[in-house]
């Protein structure tokens, strides 16, 4: 058995300075969240454009035989 303690990556430990802060999100964080939301919306719009029009029938029609 090896005797030395393994060095764990720093990122793994819950360092105290990374504890979640109960303060309100900074303006930058809110802006990022908004960006992310509008980003997702544009993704959804893009997917809407190619999505099978009759989802229920499409799902019902996707029947596979088992494989390995």
């Amino acid at each position: 058995m090896p005797s030395q303690e393994q060095s764990r990556p720093q990122r793994r430990d819950d360092a105290p300075d990374e504890a979640p802060e109960p303060t309100p999100a900074s303006p930058e964080a809110s802006a990022r969240k908004e960006n992310l939301d509008s980003d997702i919306d544009s993704v959804l719009d893009e997917i809407d454009g190619v999505l099978e029009s009759n989802a229920e029938e499409f799902v019902r029609g996707f029947v596979q035989k088992g494989g390995q």
Binding site: I40, D41, V43, L44, I47, V50, L51, E52, A55, E56, F58, V59, F62
Partner: peptide, 26 residues
């Protein structure tokens, strides 16, 4: 999951909605 959650949030879908299953396949 992020795309699925986007649909759930935007259109109020449930996980049982065939649209989400269709997206999963497509």
């Amino acid at each position: 999951q992020q795309v699925m959650q986007g649909y759930i949030d935007r259109d109020g879908l449930e996980w049982s909605d065939p649209r989400l299953r269709a997206i999963d396949i497509q």
